[in-house]
Nucleic acid binder design. Structure first.
Lengths: 119, 119
DNA sequence: TATTCATATGAACAATCATTCATATGTTTA
DNA sequence: TAAACATATGAATGATTGTTCATATGAATA
């Protein structure tokens, strides 16, 4: 064993207590990963703007693109990510595809985020 | 004007209605950016794990590193990001620096996220 | 005051990601 | 069925980001 092997913070007692608590309360690795994935989806202003539009109405792709002044392709790529993560759902009507919010948690999460940044 | 200039979705009436609603309800550009920035912070499993530890106790950097099996440097970099975004606060005690949650919204946001991924 | 411990930080690198461009798929209509 | 429209998607690219490594700062102690 090396001389400088980590003992870290000296207080072995507190340390082991902590490790025990953490191992008991920390969610599974896959849940942590899924959680981070979910918040990553909220972590882009284009997707946030799409969600704000969908707070107001069910909207087709090209109207989303027009309302946000972005290309159809860019919007479509982001809608795919939102849908994969079950934040929005879609419905085809003729040539158009209409998107809407899939989940009430979306509003809550964004509302809490807004509260936070307003201190 | 080009032949194929976008009229998009044909229904000019609905389109203008939408643009009006969006311009009225969409937050400022800077708020959208700040919101995305905030959620970006939650969008990394290392930072999520740090927050879960801090749900249980006030912890110094090296115990965090030990509990999460990561280097002190990696943890310290992530703590800086968490602190910049006011999700954690810190307190120096001798050589150690103790971190704790800064804000009640953190728990709410993560709780909502967990509810969402559990469908 | 020199050493040791705890933490912070800059640079570098690999990985991830949002947008663009070109094109494909699916639907309606002439 | 051919053309036009709405949407989806693969590849490429520039930008962002998490970790590592080396080192700096700050505090206690011998």
């Amino acid at each position: 064993m090396e001389k400088n092997e980590a003992i870290c913070c000296d207080n072995v007692e507190v340390h082991e207590e902590l490790v025990k608590i953490v191992s008991e309360t920390m969610p599974e690795e896959t849940e942590l990963y899924d959680l981070a994935e979910l918040f990553k989806v909220f972590g882009d202003s284009t997707r946030i703007r799409i969600l704000f539009v969908l707070f107001e109405a069910e909207v087709c792709v090209c109207d989303l693109a027009a309302a946000l002044h972005m290309t159809q392709s860019a919007i479509s790529h982001q809608l795919r990510i939102l849908k994969q993560n079950k934040l929005v759902k879609s419905r085809r009507e003729g040539k158009s595809v209409f998107y809407s919010l899939a989940d009430a948690h979306v509003r809550t999460i964004i509302a809490q985020g807004r509260e936070h940044i307003e201190e």
